[in-house]
Design a protein around this nucleic acid. Structure first.
Lengths: 200, 200
DNA sequence: GTCGTTTTAGACTTGCCGTTCTAGAATTTT
DNA sequence: AAAATTCTAGAACGGCAAGTCTAAAACGAC
């Protein structure tokens, strides 16, 4: 009776991938049955309904992203701005690979519109990211690595607002190099500028 | 026989507003009938189908945006960066008023995914905006108003990638002031920085 | 004023998808 | 080994929305 935890995990993984690539509304339950290898009965038993399964994938995705975040910032050798670049590189990899935006920044936002539970989760996720970024930017300021025209709050605003743009850019076909150029430009703008102009 | 051009225009206006606020899939033909005041028969006669009507609204929106763009940049008293700020302010007004992203940057992108015609239009629209921004940033560089850490291409990348983020931010409930703070921070970052740090 | 055309309003058709149900197969229990 | 429980696969149900059709109303021409 019931599924083994490991079965649930692998099912969640394929479901995440499917939702991510197709979008919530565009993913049919039949697609999920085929992708997970579980039959309808088992799916509904384990997750309640399609929405429940989606929410479970959000949680799993969130946990994964959290780990990446911590790894990048706990390396004492990298500066705050470099750690930030690393996190965006990771995000960009996912976007470029699937030609679609981050599961939460871009996809869950659609579902959030008429689902309070998802909406709550998205808000919480964004708040977490924003707090982490702000702390990082404060650190950058202390080290004198921040553009003097910006407060840490300003830098955080820019970084936060770029996230959906990177996803959308990827959806419209931008490759990894193009997306990296965006975040590199942003980090250059946020950092302390040189006295000599950069040549194109 | 047929509708007067003026009837078509007002119908298009209400349809635009409806699509914008609700999204494409979430807007039913019945909603459009009620909002435009035209009956189904007349709607299908004038625009072919729901998708045709949507594409017509895109064209109208595009034309409107084009005008705003030109107005902002043809004022000889404002610097390139200030003109850019003006255009974003206009965009932010629309976003804040409707709590949803720009019709093309955010909404049409969803539809573009499985509609080549819409996809083409979105691409063309983005290319236009990008070219205009790049020209503006080149001008800013010539005037010595650009952050020396950035090429005009870099600055354009940042500005382009911010657009969807502003829309999504608005969708998640950000008000006009918050959204303005984002673009102000970005323009500060793109501009030539002062020697003294900004105090928060 | 009557007849022909156009417009209206909404019922109807078709198709899709999430969810539930069911009958048979597999599996476990004793 | 037999019986009870659980799982499987897919059929059936219900609802919703786009697009078509139709019968009545409005309009216009002569």
């Amino acid at each position: 009776m019931g599924l083994a935890p490991q079965e649930i995990d692998t099912a969640l993984e394929s479901a995440t991938e499917l939702f991510w690539r197709l979008g919530y509304a565009e993913t049919s339950v039949q697609d999920l049955v085929e992708a997970t290898g579980l039959n309808r009965y088992a799916l509904y038993n384990a997750f309640g309904d399609k929405r429940g399964l989606f929410i479970a994938t959000l949680d799993a995705y969130h946990a994964r992203g959290f780990d990446v975040f911590n790894d990048a910032f706990n390396d004492p050798d990298t500066s705050p701005l470099e750690a930030t670049r690393k996190v965006y590189r990771w995000m960009i990899e996912g976007v470029a690979e699937r030609q679609t935006g981050c599961l939460i920044c871009n996809l869950a936002l659609d579902v959030a519109h008429d689902d309070p539970v998802v909406s709550e989760k998205v808000d919480q996720y964004f708040a977490e990211i924003e707090a982490a970024k702000l702390e990082t930017m404060r650190l950058a300021e202390q080290r004198g690595e921040l553009n003097p025209a910006l407060t840490p709050e300003d830098a955080t605003r820019i970084l936060m607002a770029l996230m959906p743009g990177i996803g959308d850019h990827g959806r419209r076909g931008a490759g990894e190099a193009e997306l990296n150029a965006v975040i590199d430009a942003a980090i250059a703008a946020i950092g302390r500028p040189p006295s000599e102009p950069k040549t194109s």
